[in-house]
Structures are given as structure tokens and as C-alpha cells.
Simulated assay, not measured.
Amino acid sequence: MEIAQMEQQVQEMPQLDMPDLDLSMSGTGPFLGSMSQADRNAEGDVVPLVRIQPQYPRDAAVAQIEGYVTIQFTIDETGSVRSPRVIDSQPPRVFDREAIRAILRWKFKPRVVDGQAVERQATQTIDFSLDDA
């Protein structure tokens, strides 16, 4: 029994003329910016783990009304939502009740400071669109 030998082609990598940038990896250089100036209370670390879609109000669906609700609330140590309140809605009061019902069922990744989960304030906007309904 004979096995055919495969001819292997090796392609050389092209030589690139790359400048030596010599960047500081500490995060304090002009290219990377200062990481110590980042706002650790920013909303960027609000991560929903469970997101329940709100019910679309029947009257709004029949009338072809779309909008949004912005809610401010507390994320507790377990990631549950407490004390939600509407801070903005468009159109006013049409979707507020369903948005609050939905957000009370959401779960978030709790903020951890020094190894301990802590409460934090957060803001979330829930859109009501007939395309999603």
C-alpha cells in the first residue's frame, strides 16, 4: 500500500515597517488616557441578567401609540430592583404602569465593592414599539 506524499507550501510573512510606539501600559499615557479618571458610578456597569419585556397596553396598541419610559430605581445587593419611579415618559403616563411592572421583575448584576455586593442607583429606559409587540 502506497501513501501519496502531499507537497507542503510555506508562505513567508511579509516584512512590515512598523514604528516603535513605546506606549506606557499604565494607562497614564497620552494615547490610552488615564483610567483613574473613569467615573466608576457611571451607568456602564448596569448589566441586566434577567430582562422581562413589558406588556403593551391594549389601548395604546389599538391607537397605534409608541413611546418610552425612563425609570430610576435601586439595585440591591441581590440584584433585585427596589423603589422604581418614573422620571420621564413619552407620551406621559401611557406606558408607566407596565414599565414599572416589568422592571420590578428584572435582575441585575450587583455592584461589588471590596468583595461585597452593595446597593446602587440606576436608570433604565424601556421602549414601547409596535414592531416589538
Rank of each mutant, 00 (worst) to 15 (best):
D127G: 13
K109Q: 15
A4G: 12
Q90K: 14
Q5D: 12
K109P: 07
Q55W: 02
V46A: 10
V86P: 00
D114Y: 06
G79D: 07
M18C: 07
T123A: 09
R82E: 13
I87G: 01
L49P: 00
E12P: 01
Q90W: 08
P92D: 10
A133E: 08
A63K: 11
P110R: 05
A102Q: 10
D88S: 12
R101A: 14
D59W: 06
F128P: 10
F31G: 00
R93E: 11
G33S: 05
G79E: 02
T123K: 03
R97N: 08
Q55H: 14
P30V: 01
I3C: 05
I75T: 03
L32T: 07
D131R: 11
V81S: 06
Q5A: 13
D76I: 05
P84N: 06
R58M: 12
Y56R: 04
S83A: 09
R120C: 02
E2I: 11
R85I: 09
Q72D: 15
V86H: 11
Q37F: 02
M6Y: 02
Q64F: 05
Q55N: 14
T125L: 04
Q64L: 10
P30F: 04
G67D: 02
S89F: 02
R105H: 12
T70N: 01
Q64D: 08
R97A: 15
F128L: 04
V10H: 09
V94A: 09
V10Y: 12
R111F: 01
I87C: 12
D131E: 15
F73V: 04
S26W: 00
V118Y: 02
A42H: 07
M6C: 11
P57G: 04
S83H: 08
Q8V: 15
I52T: 14
V47I: 13
A38H: 07
Q121G: 04
D76P: 03
M6E: 08
K109S: 13
A122R: 03
I65M: 07
L130D: 00
